[in-house]
Each structure stands twice: as structure tokens, then as C-alpha cells.
Amino acid sequence: MIAIIKYNAGNILSVQNALNRLGYDSMITDCIADIQAADKVIFPGVGEASSAMKYLKERKLDEVILAIKQPFLGICLGLQLMCKSTEEGSTKCLGIFDTEVKLFPPVEKVPNMGWNNFENVNGELFEGVSTMDDLYYVHSYYAELCKDTIATCKYVKPFSAALQKDNFYATQFHPEKSAGIGALILNNFLKL
């Protein structure tokens, strides 16, 4: 069973729909026991960082997430919340990845919305994926490059398209909304 962490973030259903299309059962839950017992955990979401962190802390989900040993995948806001901090609402985050999240400077349109390819891409999450492949992004804040960066994308400047530390994976793009190539990446995670 795959647990999709339920919190006050938008469009979590689209992740469950994507898992259904790949033939995986999943539950959308904020029940600590369910999350701990799951084979894999997905932490999706679009939304605002400070209210999302507040929600997680109130339910002690922050501590639960940090203690997870199974493969764990953060998506979009999920990725940002797994970093040290974000400029959005000056929020201290979970600190899994050793990097900061910053607002794009207004030299290009913000949010960064649309399909973009990789500059670099590494690791088992990206088996069968090339730098030519385009994934769907929609975000105003980005994670700076760091030692945990496993894929990079460029918009205004290079940023972390994906991060990994131990069992913790995260993507800034939305694999659940990125057509066939997104499904391939999700499937790579589900096979870990």
C-alpha cells in the first residue's frame, strides 16, 4: 500500500489518479499508523509553505516524516518543505535536504509554469530518462543546488529539479501531470 500524506495542500487527488493508472493501490491519509505501515510514502501538494508546515506540526506529522525509513517521495511543495527553510512566509522546514528555497527574481515570468527539460539527471529515479525529456513545473519558489541535487533544470538560473538523500526523494516537477515521462519516473520510484 502506498500512503499519500493528506494535509492542507491542493490537488492531492491527481497523485492518486496517477497511481491508479499505473495499477498501484494507495490511500490518502493523515493517520500516523497508516503512514508508518505503508510500503512507500508520497508527500505531494501545491499550496503555501507556512500554513502547510503549521498543519504538519500540529499533527506531529513533521516528526513522523523525519522517522520514515521506506522510500519517500516529495512533490513540488513537498520538495520545498523537505529543505532547510523557504523564503515563502519565512518558514523553517523539515531540513532533510541541505538547501534553501528562494523566490524566483522577477526577471522572467513568475510562476515558472510549463514544460522544461533537465540540464543534468542522475540516479535510479531517472532510469530511462534523458536531459531532453520535458516535465511539467508550476512554482514560484525553487530549491538551490546542493550536494543532494540529483537533477537540475534551468529557469532564470539552474535549480534543483530533484533531490535525494538516503530514502528521501523529491521532485520539483509534477510527475503525475507530466504525461508518459512523468509516469515512467513515478513507476521508477514505485519499483524502488
Binding site: 487527488l13 512523468g182 509516469a183
Partner: peptide
């Protein structure tokens, strides 16, 4: 639509 398609 959400169940069937995989783009935004």
C-alpha cells in the same frame, strides 16, 4: 477527466 488524463 482527472482520472483519465495525465497533463494539467
Amino acid at each position: 477527466i482527472a482520472a483519465e488524463i495525465n497533463i494539467p
